[in-house]
């Protein structure tokens, strides 16, 4: 774990939690290209002079690491993802992939958006093949690859369906298949499951972890949901707002694959409570700024439900 300039250094959380690195099940061969490291070095980004999205933020994601960015709205999570994708260029600082500056978008860094962003005029299969077609992959090879990917996300039966014929969860799986088509080194996911119901969300979390273990790609995953972050991440990065910045980083020392049973649930809960406490001040700060009169925290602090989303107490 790396802690950079902007990270508030505090004592590690959860002393009772084992601090060994996360375990990976042995005997599985990673498929495709393995992950690359990705980092921000002292990066600032402003949309306008009075609209600072993130300020001198540093963040390092190891190759093959699963990092979750958690924070309230406006803390610059999407901005960081777009910088890593190469869709935005930093106003100051450097954005790197495997130590080399990122000059623009690249198929080596794939993005999954909250609304899936599948092309409505293409079938699911054509959507998955689109990035391959861009790379000039021959038709037969594209078909084979898309079939394999759709099987991986359990959607092979729906290859000929258009996106509007699929449920939200299926569209999101389709978007993941499309993102994996070019065999990227880094997978960037911006609140991919935020619009899904709790059960679908849980199933997809399991699938993302399975893909992570099978492919060993680097994953940067943005979420509002503290529990989702603990369920998925090797390390959680807490973000603060105004300006957007990294508050602190919390390694999650739970073995993989993560279970949803009772024993692990208590530890997940402990982590989630710690994370929620870590951003309580931040949520309070926003609540104060957004209230139109002098705002007093009820009972000395905003209630943050550690099992739910941030800011549910606002």
């Amino acid at each position: 774990m790396s802690v950079f300039a902007n990270t508030l250094d505090r004592a590690p959380l959860g002393a009772e939690v084992p601090s060994a690195p996360p375990l990976r099940p042995a005997g599985r061969q990673p498929t495709g290209r393995a992950g690359a490291s990705a980092s921000l070095e002292g990066v600032s980004f402003s949309f306008a002079s009075d609209r600072v999205a993130i300020e001198t933020t540093s963040l390092h994601v190891e190759a093959g690491e699963f990092v979750c960015l958690v924070g309230p709205s406006g803390s610059g999570k999407s901005t960081i993802l777009n910088l890593l994708a190469g869709l935005l260029a930093p106003s100051a600082g450097r954005v790197l992939e495997d130590g080399a500056p990122i000059a623009g978008p690249s198929p080596a860094r794939a993005v999954v958006f909250q609304d899936a962003a599948l092309f409505p005029w293409l079938t699911l299969q054509q959507n998955v093949e689109y990035p391959l077609a861009l790379q000039g992959v021959p038709k037969a090879e594209r078909a084979a690859r898309s079939a394999e990917l759709l099987r991986t996300v359990h959607l092979l039966r729906f290859a000929a369906s258009y996106p509007h014929q699929l449920s939200g969860g299926m569209r999101q799986r389709g978007a993941i298949a499309r993102a994996l088509a070019t065999d990227p080194k880094v997978l960037l996911m911006d609140e991919p499951f935020a619009a899904l119901d709790a059960q679908t969300r849980e199933i997809l979390q399991g699938e993302v972890e399975r893909l992570f273990l099978e492919t060993r790609k680097t994953i940067v995953f943005v979420t509002h949901n503290v529990r989702e972050a603990v369920r998925l991440a090797d390390r959680v990065v807490l973000m603060g707002t105004r300006p957007g910045r990294v508050l602190r980083e919390v390694p999650i020392a739970l073995e993989r694959p993560r279970r949803t049973g009772d024993a692990s649930d208590a530890r997940v809960h402990a982590y989630a409570a710690e994370l929620a406490a870590g951003i309580r001040d931040e949520v309070e700060k926003i609540a104060k700024e957004e209230a139109d009169d002098a705002w007093v925290a009820p009972g000395g602090g905003v209630r943050v439900d550690p099992r739910r989303n941030l800011g549910s107490g606002i």
Partner: peptide, 18 residues
């Protein structure tokens, strides 16, 4: 055109006329 679609296409390497 939804900007998200354009953004998605750009991340996959689509530029200019394509």
């Amino acid at each position: 055109v939804p900007p998200q679609l354009v953004r998605a296409a750009r991340t996959m390497g689509a530029r200019g006329p394509r």
